[in-house]
């Protein structure tokens, strides 16, 4: 484990030290970043997820400890198709497993009409993503997007046809009483949702 101490530093120094630490760490070594500047904390997280570097966060008072996990993942339920054997001793880079987690029927907050429009647009665009995401998980009010009268339903169907797994939170469906209005997707419980999210290489939360 390598530790990068950015305490007392302001933007963009913590990000630069994070980058340095990641460069210097040996392959597979986790990197722990100590940050006490809230803006830098949020920017470092953003930087890591944009660069598809999985991390965990622990907060102790005003100090945040971000641990970048660089170890080999063994638990992932990797499909054969995610590897392609080239015949040489070097395996080709693994296709990253993207999971989309949808917790609301709207994208962002501020204006509800706009938020709905953005979410539909998000799904329309998601269909164009190559390769398509491995899974989309809908929970809380997000499940309403998969309802029979949802403006996003056609795009969700298209995703499903392209091989994306669609998971709907059963507790949420029951809460809203919409079980008979969901033409697509498989019902799933919290255990499955937690596993899907854990096994993702990165997660998109619109």
């Amino acid at each position: 484990m390598k530790t990068v101490d950015t305490r007392g530093l302001t933007c963009p120094a913590p990000l630069i030290k994070t980058r340095q630490g990641l460069n210097e760490a040996s392959a597979g070594e986790d990197v722990e970043i100590l940050i006490d500047n809230p803006t830098s904390f949020s920017n470092v997280k953003r930087y890591l997820s944009d660069n598809r570097l999985p991390y965990t966060v622990r907060e102790e008072g005003s100090l945040a400890i971000v641990t970048v996990r660089r170890g080999e993942k063994t638990e992932l339920s990797v499909n054969e198709t995610e590897y392609c054997t080239t015949g040489s001793e070097e395996p080709a880079p693994k296709v990253r497993k993207t999971v989309v987690a949808v917790s609301s029927e709207r994208m962002g907050s501020g204006d509800d009409v706009l938020g709905t429009k953005l979410m539909v647009s998000f799904f329309r665009t998601l269909v164009m993503l190559e390769p398509p995401p491995a899974a989309v998980v809908f929970y809380n009010a997000g499940v309403k997007l998969a309802m029979d009268d949802s403006p996003a339903l056609d795009h969700i169907r298209e995703l499903s046809e392209k091989g994306t797994a669609i998971y709907l939170c059963t507790t949420c469906i029951n809460h809203f009483g919409i079980r008979d209005r969901l033409p697509t997707g498989s019902f799933s419980d919290m255990y499955q949702i937690v596993n899907i999210l854990r096994d993702a290489d990165h997660i998109i939360c619109p």
């Binding site: 933007c11 963009p12 990000l15 630069i16 340095q20 949020s42 920017n43 953003r46 930087y47 660069n51």
Partner: peptide, 29 residues
């Protein structure tokens, strides 16, 4: 920028544009 010297204002601006911006496939971070 590659070394991480990205000022906070760039992240604020990214917050602003990203709902209405499509990054092309393979756009360099």
């Amino acid at each position: 920028a590659e070394q991480g010297c990205i000022p906070g204002a760039a992240f604020r601006n990214l917050d602003y544009t990203e709902g209405d911006t499509l990054p092309a496939d393979g756009l360099d971070y």
